Computed example of a mutant assay.
Amino acid sequence: MRRHTLRTAVALCSAALLGAAVSTACAAPPAAQAVRQQPRAPVLVDCFWHPKVRPADFMLACGDGNSRLTSLQWTKWNAHSATARGLNLVNDCKPYCAAGRFHTYRVDVRLDHPRPWKKHPQLQHYTRISLTYPDGRPESFTRVMTYPLWD
């Protein structure tokens, strides 16, 4: 009797697992499957190697935190580029960075040159950032500053 009960229990568990696998595979509607197959827009990789899409803030100087983008309002984010307006908080480092003051500058941001991300090759990430200062700008900065982004 015990052997018969064990076989019955194993058969029932196997049938339940098989049923769950089949119903999960069939549960996704075709439209959802099509969405998953479309390439995602590139991401912006932050200082902690996290992928971000349309972040409100972004640290430019990961090592010392002396330059940061804030209040970002994204107007475009697609497979080729992204654009935003916001503020750039920059430490003047006078007389040295620990004693310096942060100054705020209006800035237009552009991300471009998407490439596969080394950490997650299935994801594209923007590899270049350009900052355009329409009004004032930090000392020694040109009106447009372009930097490579980390991989």
Results as ranks from 00 to 15, higher is better:
T5R: 11
T8P: 01
A9W: 07
A9T: 06
V10W: 10
A11P: 00
A11F: 11
L12I: 15
S14F: 10
S14G: 15
L17F: 05
L17Y: 09
S23T: 14
T24M: 13
A25F: 14
A25K: 06
A28W: 06
A28I: 11
A28G: 10
P29M: 07
P29H: 13
P29V: 15
P30T: 12
A32V: 11
V35K: 15
Q37F: 07
Q37T: 14
Q37Y: 10
Q37M: 13
P39M: 11
A41E: 09
V43C: 06
V43S: 03
L44I: 01
C47P: 05
F48W: 08
H50M: 11
L60P: 06
G63I: 06
G63M: 08
G63R: 09
N66G: 04
S67Y: 01
L69R: 04
Q73N: 12
W77V: 14
N78F: 12
A79P: 02
H80S: 15
H80T: 15
S81W: 07
T83I: 13
R85G: 09
G86F: 04
L87G: 03
N88R: 11
N88L: 13
N88C: 07
V90P: 02
K94M: 06
K94T: 13
P95D: 00
C97A: 12
A98T: 13
A99R: 11
A99D: 07
F102D: 02
F102W: 01
H103C: 02
H103P: 03
T104F: 04
R106P: 01
V107R: 00
D108W: 06
V109W: 00
L111P: 04
L111W: 00
L111F: 06
K118Q: 09
Q122S: 08
Q122A: 10
L123G: 02
Y126K: 07
T127N: 07
T127H: 00
S130H: 05
L131D: 01
T132P: 08
T132S: 11
D135P: 09
G136R: 04
P138I: 05
E139L: 15
E139R: 14
E139N: 12
S140Q: 08
R143T: 14
T146I: 12
L149Q: 06
L149K: 02
W150L: 12
W150S: 15
W150C: 05
D151H: 11
